[in-house]
Nucleic acid binder design. Sequence first.
RNA 1: CGGGGUGUAGCGUAGCCCGGUAUCGCGCUUGGUUUGGGACCAAGAGGUCGUAGGUUCGAAUCCUGCCACCCCGACCA
Length: 491
Amino acid sequence: MNKQITARSKDYAQWYNDLIIKGELADYTPVRGAMVIRPYGYALWENMKEVLDKKFKETGHQNAYFPLLIPKSFLNKEAEHVEGFAKECAVVTHYRLKNSVERNVLEVDPEAKLEEELIVRPTSETIIWNSYKKWIKSYRDLPLKINQWGNVVRWEMRTRLFLRTSEFLWQEGHTAHATSEEAIKETQQILDVYADFAENYMALPVIKGVKTASERFAGAVNTYCIEALMQDGKALQAGTSHFLGQNFAKAFGVQFANKENKQEYVWASSWGVSTRLVGGLVMAHGDDNGLVLPPKIAPIQVVIVPIYRNEEQKESIDKKADVWLSELRKAGVRAKYDDDETTRPGWKFAEHEKKGVPVRLAVGPRDIENEQVEVSRRDKEGKERYPMDGLVARVQNLLETIQTDMFENAKTFRDEHITAVDDFDTFKKVLEKKGGFISAHWDGTAETEQKIKELTKATIRCIPLNNPQEEGECIFSGRPSKERVLFARAY
RNA sequence: CGGGGUGUAGCGUAGCCCGGUAUCGCGCUUGGUUUGGGACCAAGAGGUCGUAGGUUCGAAUCCUGCCACCCCGACCA
């Protein structure tokens, strides 16, 4: 039924890279760990952005833009934050190059050394809180809810297309509130936005939860996350939303006068999703023929491929296609008529499969004669024929069906890969043979978490929200525990 | 940063062990026939063999250094 036959049996990393490169989402670059997002990949990202941006605005956020370069001293203001990011920052030390005449090379001008080095933002908390200090004086200035679309640079040791590139695109929201409750509510609201987006647009089932202390964002009091499962059984953190407490407010001295005219530190949240989501999409849905994109965010939702032997036939197909195309577009469907005369139908079929186009309509002389169209959906094998009459409505319907089927399919896989385990031997076996999430008791200590990580490479992905409380013994230490947490190997 | 691997035409590769001036496929160009699952025939174009040096009459091949990329680990969205 499903085309996902050997996707996980092959070399997974190779399969993943092939999908991205042959699917024309991205390319490698001469810069270590960076990537070029190609037009098709960028169109996909733009569709994702558009949906998220609308949701942010609906929930009262505004967009703004802050600088790429941050004075080094800013990073230093929040102790844990430095700790977390210092190891992976690109640093600007000079502002000029000069042409060395004698050696005929362009070199850094030693005369142009910056007094204070600048770092290329790995995240923007510090530069944003520097502004918030100026903007927030009174409770009337709160809440302040700002989102930024931009790029950040993290000099990761090991990179992987989309999942961990040294430069990536993302959105980062930064909010300030008068009360702790309100900031926490904001943090949770955004988590819901992320989960809704992942499940209903990307067809990617996620588990909402909170991170353990050791997996928490550097500088956060609490980190909420959505965790997804990939086809090779590894987990992917798909988005995070942090409750920052008053940490950044204190570090940057952001106080406001409350209604009683007393000075208080503001409460904060920050949250983000990145182009990593594209990687998650590829790994969660792709098969051996290429990408499989969910209709709601696919750059091309429907492609029409003409099949003809002569000009006369082509013209009659053109006529039909023009009508469908305008009807589809009127109905809000992103449709393409692939009438490229330099490639043949079989080529086009394969091409659009690689690119994950959800629905393909093929029309040839036989179809014209029978008043029907050959329809094939990317997420399932096989072809059907639809009558030309009422075609657009049926195609729209099919797109919705594909969207929900893709989600259900991924959810079934995910649910089958959550295994409750009560002893460490089984834990290791399940991890090795089956993969996926393991639901197990944990004694709540960082030491145990660390030991398990060292022994198995599995980390605690999250403590699910609304987790049922249940007495038990820690899988590793045997100490008492009152709830299960989710372990997995992760990207 | 540690371990492994790979660099040969736009892409994928053979040749390397055992030294004699580079193979094949895809793509590209031109012409023709084709077009319901990556067409076929014919003719063509395209190369500082990653880079620097060494050995040699002669190096893609042997030796040394360097660089880049991929994979695995540590780190992370």
